[in-house]
Computed example of a mutant assay.
Amino acid sequence: MGDRERNKKRLLELLRAAGTGNARCADCGAADPDWASYKLGVFICLHCSGVHRNFPDISRVKSVRLDFWEDGLVEFMTHNGNLRAKAKYEARVPAFYYIPQASDCLVLKEQWIRAKYERQEFMADGKNISLTV
C-alpha cells in the first residue's frame, strides 16, 4: 500500500476513533466531516471548510478523501483532533454564547469560527498561541 492510501486509511480511522470527537465537525457538529484543518488539527464539514479557507494564515484545509496527505500532517492530526481543540479553543465560552449547529446559516458559523480561531476569544489563558506545521 502506497503512502497515499496508507495515510487516507489512517485519517479515516481517526474520524471513527472513539473518544476523539472527530466523527462530528469541530465547528458546527455536522456528522461525518470530510475535511480537515491541518494547521489546527481538527476535522470539519464542507461548509465550515469554506470559512476556514478565508484565513489561510490560521487554518489550511484538505479533503480527507481526495487530497494527498504527507506523513507529518497525518501525525499532527493524530496528536490533535476535535476534542483537544475544543478544550483549547472553547475553554471559556460564555454560557449565553450561541454556538451554531449544522443547520444554521453560514454567517453564524463564520462568526463562531472567527471568534474561536482568529480572535481566540475563548482560550483558557487568553494568550495567542503560534500555530505551526
Rank of each mutant, 00 (worst) to 15 (best):
Trp35Met: 08
Ala36Asp: 05
Ser37Pro: 02
Lys39Thr: 11
Lys39Gln: 04
Leu40Pro: 06
Leu40Gln: 00
Gly41Ala: 08
Gly41Lys: 08
Gly41Ile: 11
Val42Gly: 04
Val42Cys: 01
Phe43Pro: 04
Ile44Pro: 00
Ile44Phe: 02
His47Tyr: 11
Cys48Phe: 04
Ser49Pro: 00
Gly50Leu: 10
Gly50Lys: 07
Arg53Cys: 14
Arg53Gln: 12
Asn54Phe: 11
Phe55Ala: 05
Phe55Gly: 09
Phe55Tyr: 10
Val61Arg: 00
Val61Pro: 05
Val61Phe: 00
Lys62Leu: 14
Lys62Glu: 03
Lys62Tyr: 08
Lys62Val: 11
Lys62Asp: 04
Ser63Cys: 13
Ser63Asn: 13
Ser63Phe: 11
Ser63Pro: 10
Val64Met: 12
Val64Arg: 11
Arg65Gly: 09
Asp67Met: 02
Phe68Leu: 12
Phe68Ser: 13
Trp69Gly: 04
Glu70Asn: 05
Glu70Lys: 10
Asp71Ser: 13
Gly72Ala: 15
Leu73Phe: 09
Val74Ser: 08
Val74Tyr: 09
Glu75Lys: 15
Phe76Pro: 01
Met77Ala: 09
Met77Tyr: 04
Met77Cys: 01
Thr78Val: 04
Thr78Leu: 01
Asn80Cys: 14
Asn80Glu: 11
Asn80Tyr: 13
Gly81Val: 02
Asn82Ala: 03
Leu83Lys: 15
Arg84Glu: 01
Arg84His: 10
Ala85Leu: 05
Ala85Ser: 14
